[in-house]
């Protein structure tokens, strides 16, 4: 498999696992010391670029942050997640950075996430761009760093980790 094919496969699997709520499979795509980051917009043009000094939509400095969110989704204790909104991710246009090697690569892509909220029968589409930093661990590609740019950050009522 070419590097681009391997990257595309991982991106598609991430969308699949989220949409099928295979949360453990989703978490297993991430390195334990990963970072998961969705910057906020500072104004019409500029995104936040420093999670230590600026608010992010999501910033987790390890997989434990994602694990907390998965626990919450599964808990049945969060009104915004009962029933869990249905999602479909479409991930397209993957482009590898020039520095890609057999051990590490950066892939940029475009995404949309369609969300159907059963509680009030409304639907919404979030969309944006991904930047995945992938590393090969024991033969498998894993996510070391994921940056999510959310283009439409005017949020109707809720937005969880599986909605982007």
């Amino acid at each position: 498999m070419t590097l681009l094919a391997a990257a595309s496969d991982l991106l598609a699997r991430e969308g699949l696992y989220l949409d099928e709520r295979r949360w453990d499979d989703w978490l297993a795509l991430y390195c334990e010391d990963c970072t998961f980051w969705a910057p906020s917009w500072l104004d019409e043009e500029v995104q936040s670029n420093d999670p230590e000094r600026q608010i992010s939509l999501f910033y987790f400095s390890s997989r434990a942050g994602l694990e907390d969110r998965v626990w919450r989704i599964r808990s049945g204790q969060a009104p915004s997640l009962v029933p869990i909104p249905r999602t479909t991710h479409l991930i397209a246009n993957p482009v590898l950075d020039d520095c890609a090697t057999g051990d590490a690569m950066v892939v940029r892509s475009a995404w949309t996430c369609h969300i159907y909220t059963l509680r009030n029968r409304t639907q919404h589409v979030f969309f944006g761009r991904y930047e995945h930093h992938l590393v090969r661990l024991g033969g498998d590609w894993r996510i070391q760093h994921k940056k999510i740019t959310l283009m439409n950050d005017f949020v109707p009522a809720m937005l969880d980790v599986f909605c982007v």
Partner: peptide, 11 residues
Amino acid sequence: FVPGRTNYTFN
């Protein structure tokens, strides 16, 4: 304000 606000709606 810490840079980076959130903006949302509810029905």
